[in-house]
Simulated scan of single mutants.
Amino acid sequence: MKQLNFNTHIFIGDDALDCLKGYSNQRICIVTDAYMVESNLIEYVTRSINDTNKYDVFTDIVPDPTIDNVVSGVATLAEFKPTMMIAFGGGSAIDAAKAIKYFGIKLAIISELLLIVIPTTSGTGSEVTNFAVITNPQAGLKYPLVDELLQPDKAILDGRLVKTVPPKVTADTGMDVLTHALEAYVSTEANDFSDALAEKAVDLIFNYLVRAYQHGDDMEAREKVHYASCIAGIAFNQASLGLCHGMAHTMGGKLHMPHGRLNGVLLPTIIQFNANESQRALDKYAQLARKQGWANSRGKVGVRNLINEISDLRQKLEMPASFVAAGYTCEEIKPVLEVIAKEAIKDPTTRTNPVQPSTEQIKKIVLSLF
């Protein structure tokens, strides 16, 4: 028996932030980064909080949030004693907020905390998942957390908040969305519900991501990609992910490469690896290609069509197709290749990959991209 939970309430549209106006007499901790404050984007949030509430802004957030960020945030909880938390920003701010809440409850600093997430990038889907990733920079490792305590209570999707996202970030985060959808689709935990969500996310990305990348003020494209991110997040929250994320988590800590860009390098090769080793994966990739309307998408031809379309999308987004194109050398990766392979196998997302790889197979995948 499998239980499907869709616990986060989602608000969409230009007036979605109005849902914050209904809260009164709360102590609200807003977790964000310094840029959101300096650029005044945070006013989208603070203008929607009525005067009966008190709020404190926590900005000690860095890309790939660290254990130290979380410790600092937990100290803020102990001091401010919030009843609500609003995570406002990209994946780093959201993951940090979720981890701060998690450890605040685990350490009995708070007993409960309403968590509202407002994403300002279209990529992680973290606003609807019980996942978070925290980095240990000293060890060069990323630790995925998976727990129901990480599940946001509400998510607010407002396309205006992603209008000024730079093209490179739009590309990186959009490729992350595609990876989420494709990995959920072939996951060993996939089901008809997650498949339907993943298919829709793939369709939206192929139809709107290039438009959002090339024309940032195209609000239809921005909104559709923003929704695709959330839809893919719901899909992988039900089905989990796969080897691409298992490798990206550990390689990201070593190479300090943007997560979505790293997924973009790995994804076509891992699709081919999965299709070579699993008939079920091959059939599902081909099925997805047919649903996208790519001609003659049967069997291995369907997989090849899917890979070709991803490669073409990557090229239009001006993203690297190899680690060399991304600015890395084989000499940089060889000393940590064994650790990368072992950590990728231990990563919880790898457990639901359609194929359980060996360390040698992972090393071969990495080296083939130099």
Rank of each mutant, 00 (worst) to 15 (best):
Q292F: 11
T135V: 04
G22V: 04
A248C: 13
A75V: 02
E199M: 11
Y44L: 01
I134E: 01
G327Q: 14
E277F: 09
S39F: 01
Q356M: 15
L178V: 10
S24H: 14
A248W: 03
M36I: 04
T66K: 01
T66A: 02
V336E: 04
G73D: 04
P166H: 10
K142D: 03
R27D: 07
A275N: 09
N5G: 01
A344H: 01
I67V: 14
M251N: 11
A221H: 03
K346I: 02
K54M: 03
N305F: 05
I67L: 10
T170D: 02
V146D: 09
D347P: 08
E343W: 08
E318Y: 11
E331H: 05
I100Q: 05
Q26I: 07
Q361E: 15
S72Y: 06
V45N: 06
L337A: 05
S368Q: 12
M85W: 06
I270K: 04
D218L: 01
G252Y: 08
G104R: 00
R211N: 14
A34R: 13
T121S: 14
L77Y: 09
Q272I: 05
D147N: 15
M251L: 15
K224E: 15
V162G: 00
G293R: 12
I105R: 00
I365T: 00
Q238L: 15
